[in-house]
Computed example of a mutant assay.
Amino acid sequence: MTQPNKKKSISEIKELLKTITDEKDERLALIAQDERLGVQKALVSWKKARQKIKEAEEERDRMLVYEKALWEREFHYVAGIDEVGRGPLAGPVVTASVVLPPDVSLVGIRDSKKLSVSKREKLYEEIMDAAVSVGIGVVDAAQIDELNILQATKAAMKKSIEQLTVQPDYLLVDALELPLPIPQTSIIKGDATSLSIAAASIIAKVTRDRMMTEYDELYPGYGFSKNAGYGTQEHLNGLKNQGPSPIHRYSFSPVTQYKK
């Protein structure tokens, strides 16, 4: 082992730390011998960052319990399925089906509602890149009025499965059972306990939010880009002043009272 190279600047050591991922890397011991305050602060920051990564990896592994058990039983394509948009007064219900590979290394995936917009967008891209396949299903407001929201959600889930490029041999579904001839498990709060379902919740959420932002340009006055169709005061004021738009759910209260 060489002696510590104290000729390295603090900025150089910070850059070096960015390349180290193993806590047993011998370079850490050398850096620890450097008594400069800036170096010691950088080392503490590195250790905190590594701890966060370790915790994220542990959370990922905890959320793969269902998937790992199924992979061990030789179910190769396990699809996690979730929905977004059952409660809004306007816009579609959007669902996603996500098949992850057994060697998935993604971290930070969790219930989409617990993530910031920027984090969801980042994870959306990572999931799309890492997944074996992703399918998206959309059922619009008119179909929701025709079917009811529960049946519309199931129809959207079936659409998302049909969009997969692989045939899933097992389904992990958030809180619902689907009338399909595919083995499945319904998991209450699945987006908190299954990585595949949580990944699906992120895909569905980002997809729907992007749609609602586009609808806000087509139908201004309701604040769709900010409230995603939920009944905020701005949205209710828009309903009162303008009446419903073509993407409103006429079977939902209070939209019904403004129906012409």
Rank of each mutant, 00 (worst) to 15 (best):
residue 3 Q to R: 11
residue 3 Q to A: 13
residue 9 S to Y: 02
residue 12 E to F: 06
residue 12 E to K: 11
residue 21 T to I: 10
residue 22 D to K: 09
residue 25 D to R: 03
residue 26 E to W: 00
residue 28 L to V: 02
residue 33 Q to K: 15
residue 37 L to F: 13
residue 37 L to I: 15
residue 38 G to F: 02
residue 38 G to W: 02
residue 48 K to L: 15
residue 50 R to M: 14
residue 55 E to G: 04
residue 55 E to S: 11
residue 58 E to C: 01
residue 60 R to D: 06
residue 67 E to I: 05
residue 72 E to K: 15
residue 73 R to F: 05
residue 76 H to P: 00
residue 82 D to F: 01
residue 84 V to Q: 00
residue 88 P to F: 05
residue 90 A to M: 08
residue 90 A to H: 03
residue 93 V to G: 05
residue 95 T to E: 03
residue 95 T to I: 07
residue 96 A to Q: 04
residue 98 V to L: 06
residue 99 V to L: 11
residue 99 V to M: 08
residue 99 V to T: 07
residue 105 S to I: 01
residue 108 G to K: 02
residue 108 G to C: 07
residue 108 G to E: 07
residue 112 S to F: 08
residue 116 S to L: 08
residue 117 V to S: 14
residue 121 E to Y: 06
residue 124 Y to G: 04
residue 125 E to V: 10
residue 130 A to K: 12
residue 133 S to I: 11
residue 137 G to N: 08
residue 143 Q to T: 11
residue 148 N to K: 02
residue 151 Q to L: 12
residue 152 A to S: 04
residue 152 A to C: 05
residue 161 I to K: 02
residue 162 E to G: 11
residue 170 Y to T: 00
residue 177 E to W: 10
residue 180 L to T: 09
residue 182 I to F: 04
residue 188 I to V: 15
residue 190 G to E: 01
residue 192 A to C: 13
residue 195 L to D: 05
residue 197 I to T: 00
residue 197 I to E: 01
residue 198 A to M: 05
residue 199 A to S: 14
residue 205 K to G: 04
residue 208 R to D: 05
residue 212 M to F: 08
residue 212 M to E: 03
residue 219 Y to M: 09
residue 219 Y to W: 11
residue 224 F to R: 02
residue 225 S to L: 07
residue 227 N to Q: 05
residue 230 Y to H: 03
residue 231 G to T: 09
residue 235 H to Q: 13
residue 236 L to S: 07
residue 238 G to T: 10
residue 239 L to T: 07
residue 241 N to K: 15
residue 244 P to M: 09
residue 245 S to F: 08
residue 245 S to D: 10
residue 247 I to P: 11
residue 249 R to C: 08
residue 250 Y to G: 10
residue 251 S to V: 02
residue 251 S to H: 02
residue 251 S to P: 02
residue 254 P to A: 08
residue 258 Y to F: 15
residue 258 Y to W: 12
